[in-house]
Design a protein around this nucleic acid. Structure first.
Lengths: 229, 229
DNA sequence: ATAAAATATATTGTATACAAAATTTAATTA
DNA sequence: TAATTAAATTTTGTATACAATATATTTTAT
């Protein structure tokens, strides 16, 4: 009769290395650590009040995720994101997002569809009062549902990782003139096609959305429009 | 005048965790550790004559790669590969291999093309005397060149990782009747289309190859044909 | 004899310690 | 003064030690 407590504890337990990893990742994404900057284990450990062990394990994970580059016996450096990197990531993401959209059109549940539609409305309100922080938050939730609806956990993980690698590192492309409105329209079309269970339509919508997002990101990078909050 | 030695040392240096990681990965792939089996750090460390530290770091990496599953405070277990996993992996791989083939058709160098053609011949000889080990080896090299030719390092890494996650875990599907000959023909067509710089043709060839490979793998799994050397 | 509780053991998570290598600083020489 | 070499410092890589938690075993009570 004491069986359900264990379950909760099991899920809620997070090893230090996870917390440390999330902390460092966030610091990279929000610019606390600049690209090319060296990350030193003792320093990070001291700052966070933990030992080197969990820091090391966190750094190993971030290396696999592509956020940092490790040179044996030399140290760890925050990854530099180049135009080539954007290109590489979007080459893959366009492909995988199209796949995910098609799968979602086939496999999404009615509940998930309802959630998507609600988020669509919510984004609208945040766009109206130009609340960028909220927009990013809801946008992330939106895509999360979409990838979950593909019913392919690996696909979800790979895309999430690719998203994180570029989202935010050079500022969101959200503040590019006109992009917000376009994004909304693209999302609406995507949801509409998925709701219609139109696989090809959903795929086409996803492709257009991603290609536009890449173009905007490249433009804002080239123009040095790296606006940070 | 001592500048070039450093370069070599830098490349050749491999941390213990890397060696340990490769060692454990290989043991999982070749069946030394069975799916579901628990991996204990001290035991592994003792067997390999190292301390727990590099073993832990290796296990963290294998978790990211999907070879093992970690439950906090409970332990690490060799991942179970299910039909659903095969499905998920191939859903992604078909998509990414098609992408890679298309990119390769655009970006491959003449040298790489020559290498591919050579390997095609080499595989032929190994098929003739049914040297499975050599076939797997050359096949890996073949695909490696292909992914390298896509000029997208991230793509290469993702595909390599997906390949490793299923190749070998349930025995190669190579020993499925007739598959070897089909594989050869599919490879030949793929190289031919790439050589012709025919993007769409290369993509189609890659898709056919992967779909067939998946079918064969599923068949041999269902038939319990998990032949091991 | 079976089930529950308490104890013992084993294993993971984290911290610290030491060794090897790289980087930096200081010193020496041309 | 500049360049080269040597010493000192820093930092990573690995090993070990300790603490917290989970599992296994034994004991006890019904």
């Amino acid at each position: 009769m004491a069986g359900h407590l264990e379950q909760i504890r099991l899920d809620s337990y997070k090893p230090l290395r996870e917390l440390v990893c999330e902390h460092i990742r966030q610091a990279i994404i929000d610019g606390t650590f600049s690209p090319g900057e060296r990350l030193m284990e003792i320093q990070l450990a001291d700052e966070m009040g933990v030992s080197r062990t969990p820091v090391r394990e966190a750094i190993r994970k971030l290396e696999l995720e592509g956020f940092v580059v490790m040179i044996p016996r030399r140290g760890t450096y925050v990854a530099n994101i180049s135009i080539k990197d954007i290109n590489d990531v979007y080459e893959i993401r366009i492909c995988l997002d199209v796949l995910a959209a098609g799968l979602a059109a086939e496999r999404i549940t009615e509940e998930e569809l309802e959630d998507l539609k609600k988020l669509l409305v919510e984004i609208g309100t945040h766009v109206a009062d130009y609340n960028l922080e909220k927009i990013v938050e809801v946008d992330t939730a939106f895509h999360d549902i979409l990838y979950t609806a593909s019913r392919n956990e690996r696909l979800r993980n790979i895309i999430s990782n690719l998203r994180e690698q570029i989202t935010g590192i050079r500022g969101t492309s959200m503040n590019y003139p006109g992009r917000l409105a376009d994004t909304m329209a693209e999302h609406r079309l995507l949801v509409e096609r998925i709701a219609a269970r139109d696989v090809e339509g959903a795929q086409a919508a996803a492709r257009v959305h991603l290609e536009n997002a890449e173009q905007t990101l490249l433009k804002s990078m080239l123009e040095g429009q790296n606006a940070k909050d």
